[in-house]
Design a protein around this nucleic acid. Structure first.
Lengths: 353, 353
DNA sequence: GCGCCAATTGTAAGCGCTTACATTTTTCTG
DNA sequence: CAGAAAAATGTAAGCGCTTACAATTGGCGC
């Protein structure tokens, strides 16, 4: 067995980097003249340590520059004080705001956030989730309600709290904090119908593995059907979340004869593509074509014309999702379905037919 | 204390959640009829385990659904297989692409990424960094070269590899992989000068704690000075990375008499603000005013007029940064200053005076 | 001051895994 | 096939911390 292979000493053969920064709880305890248990308690529940010792420990911690060793803590306590979030993409702003609010709230409570992205692939999402779980996250945020069923089982089995954001479905069997995409899409289409439009084009996001895109498209269909407006396959274009693709899809819509007088978009980026394509083709918005988006990204209100779109309460959603997880981690049992409003904001990209 | 509030086993007094998922290395070892050491070796360097046992272990792992316990691993090995990245913001797309590439590369090598943001505050950055270090990240990515000096000391002391991206300075004393912001700004302004512009407006990003914004502004100043063009304080507006603010700043520029014929922007979002403000005020771009941006966000080429801007090689930067860290972690000593090109892309928002 | 109860502390057993070192097995030489 | 070197395995000591439980202390009423 090793005998004198302690750190500090030169000529040491160990190649592992000194844990954390070399100072351990033990050192602090010695310096403060108390047991490690007391220091540990001081760290997690200071009020359980008598004032006098508290001061001594405080001093020792400061003198030594002690930083608790996260892994050791996690191992001993089975809690990591980390939360994982898996979003479809980091490539654009939609989720950024919500995640940011989520993170802020968690941080206030002493949790750190692990962010991963899956590029709109449920399989990849599952893999990322396993990685996060192996890292021991205490809770998890997912986007939407479409997930690998095995993932839910896994989370339930582990007893790891989780919540979905960006979707709300009163019939959902899992906790979710979000808005009703179907209902919002009803409003999108309804607005255009009210303005007198009857020839539509729909630029949906990619439906596969994406309940939000699907619900939105369904909502539009439902709204139109209810007013006796049918949609041919050519009038519905599915396109990825990207400007080039959405412009191309919009172009196909503009080539239709008769040309649609209104385009409903699955999100704002797609709407930007539609808008830009119209401008490039010399089609006036909203005089000749009305366009409505979904997300209300920061740019939308500034565009020329400003985009009529559905405002998504990402900030609130992020905060509430964090609060839900924190409550669950605190042993509470908060309401696990929260619906937030996602209202249509009327701006200049839509006009009467 | 509570006593019988356990989940699984009845009558159990422990309240901690079963580590990972209940099955440990020990269980696998027993089932496979080998020692824990062998299983551990199988997990990290399978080729060191004889084929026959390998199969038995494989089977046991599969049967039991074993997942290694991250914290225990980290504690025992002093390696977490995680990397931390601290970016100024997640609120927009600039860093998203680079980080994404960074993450992809790390993932290939079995590392997981921790992302944090500091909202352009060096103090906050320091705090976030400490959190990540306490979590035991094996390496760290920073943006730019402006950082709390204590942070560098801390990293050096811990021996944690790190690298800065988005900036390149041949005189920098720390590893950096990026481009020369000053040089790129020279090109921005030079282009406008070449087109015959002499009355400028500058919309810089917030300089404080931000070497990139500062270098860009300096670059513009240098270029103009070299051609004998001076800048009054009113011609230089510093504004935060946000549309409302940049529109307001642009508005002040447009109100100047004589009005600038060209506006150099510290980044694309600011340029969008300028462009939108011009459109809103009925000032034609580029006929009456030329605008040049910096970043080349995806939207820039699609805008009407398409934005002349500096293309930032974020993808490459992210990948190279990851490779640098991986090399350092592998004990290599890769070149620690890498300059990438950031070229001006000429599009329709600039025209001869 | 004394006795009692509650508030504080200390003791020490792990948490699940890695790894140095010792031991056993295999493979190679001659 | 003996003997030595190489390869594979086992043994067991931690990694730094939390936390039951036991032991101590302090505060108070009389």
């Amino acid at each position: 067995m090793a005998r004198d292979e302690k750190v500090g000493a030169p000529g040491n053969k160990r190649l592992r980097k000194p844990a954390a920064n070399g100072v351990t709880l033990q050192h602090v305890a010695e310096r403060a003249g108390v047991s490690t248990a007391t220091v540990s308690r001081y760290l997690s529940r200071p009020d359980q340590v008598r004032q006098a010792r508290r001061a001594r420990i405080e001093q020792a911690v400061a003198d030594l520059g002690y930083i608790p060793h996260g892994a050791a803590r996690a191992l001993a306590s089975s809690r990591t004080q980390t939360i994982g979030a898996i979003v479809p993409t980091l490539d654009n702003a939609i989720f950024a705001q919500g995640i940011h609010a989520f993170q802020r709230r968690l941080q206030e409570a002493g949790y750190t956030l692990f962010i991963a992205s899956h590029g709109y692939s449920l399989l990849e999402e599952r893999i990322q989730a396993e990685t996060l779980l192996a890292r021991g996250v205490d809770g998890m945020l997912l986007i939407g309600l479409d997930h690998d069923p095995g993932l839910y089982r896994r989370l339930d089995k582990l007893g790891t709290p989780y919540v979905s954001a960006w979707s709300y479905d009163r019939r959902a069997e899992r906790p979710c904090i979000g808005f009703d995409n179907h209902k919002a899409a009803l409003a999108q289409a309804g607005h255009l119908l009210d303005l007198g439009h009857r020839r539509f084009g729909v630029l949906a996001g990619v439906i596969r593995d994406n309940d939000r895109a699907r619900d939105r498209l369904e909502g539009v269909r439902t709204a139109l059907n209810a007013r006796g407006v049918a949609l041919t396959p050519a009038q519905v274009q599915e396109c990825p979340y990207e400007l080039g693709a959405s412009r191309a899809a919009a172009k196909r819509l503009l080539a239709l004869d008769p040309r649609p007088t209104a385009i409903v978009c699955g999100n704002d980026v797609i709407a930007y593509g539609a808008l830009l394509e119209c401008q490039a083709s010399g089609v006036d918005v909203p005089a000749e074509i009305s366009i409505v988006g979904f997300d209300d990204l920061p740019l939308s209100e500034h565009l020329q014309p400003a985009l009529t779109t559905v405002h998504v309460p990402s900030e609130t959603m992020g905060r509430k999702a964090a609060e839900f997880l924190l409550a669950r981690l605190g042993g509470e049992d908060p309401p696990d379905k929260v619906e937030l409003a996602a209202n249509l904001i009327l701006r200049a990209s839509t006009a009467p037919r």
